[in-house]
Design a protein around this nucleic acid. Structure first.
Lengths: 136, 136
DNA sequence: TTAACCAGTGCAACCCAACTGCAAAGTTTA
DNA sequence: TAAACTTTGCAGTTGGGTTGCACTGGTTAA
């Protein structure tokens, strides 16, 4: 059984043909993926199927979503060890020139001291600027 | 001349009746404001006028925008001293229960060590969880 | 004073990402 | 095999954001 198929099963997601294709695509990317990206890459696959696949993947912690400020949701693979909990959070980078968005998986979000009685459960941290390709 | 009118002039924005109303509204809020909030609060003011007022205010650094992950842009007053530069950045908090979004103006975004050759110009940092009102 | 100008406003419409309802196809269970 | 459930494809809706255009009211130029 293939790696990708196992990955889905480990996350309790039934490995259908469509899902295998989508997960395969994710593993080939170095940058975060939008629904549009998927639609184009996997044409003529149906938009709503892809949408629901993303939702399923997110719910089952195969991918996480990133709001990079463009108004278009992006998604990236979770790390193997990820439970999408506080300790797993990392910063993201959005390049304002090439408009790509990356996970900075080595940059973990630190513990942040919040005002009294506030409770942190999640975070969406996006740094904006120029990526190494565009910063010439 | 009133405080609010001065505020606009200081930021090189002509103080029209509409703009005074919008800025007045902002000063009365403790949480971030969406276009919808404005439409309701200042009814029957026109949506596109409000939209363009927000754009003007943002361009002139009277307010800053926050992407809190709800897909709806929110805005909040800049601090007096703010130039919307790196040193002025602060964290934001989005309560997943009451769905309000706040500036944590006392929590400045620290310098973050990025991968080689990446350049940070801006950031959108949103912590999610329960605010002090909802965390019972 | 009148005419030309221009920023700001209001209305109507458009765009598009996100999302939903429903029926067909595929898969699992009894 | 039949029934029950899941996934998929299609078509359509929703809603925030945005734009085009005409009108207004205040300012400038002749």
């Amino acid at each position: 059984m293939k790696q990708i198929e196992l990955h889905l099963k480990n996350k309790s997601v039934k490995p259908t043909a469509m899902r295998l294709l989508v997960l395969q695509f994710f593993t080939e990317q170095t940058k975060a993926v939008s629904l549009k990206n998927l639609e184009i890459a996997l044409a003529p696959a149906d938009k709503s199927t892809l949408f629901r696949t993303l939702r399923t993947f997110e719910k089952n912690k195969i991918i996480h979503s990133i709001e990079d400020g463009t108004g278009i949701a992006k998604y990236a693979l979770c790390l193997e060890s990820c439970n999408c909990e506080l300790g797993d959070l990392h910063y993201h980078f959005h390049c304002t020139q090439c408009e790509n968005t990356f996970c900075l998986t080595t940059l973990n979000v630190p513990l942040i001291e919040l005002p009294t009685n506030f409770k942190m459960n999640q975070a969406n941290m996006v740094i904006k600027g120029l990526c190494s390709n565009c910063n010439i």
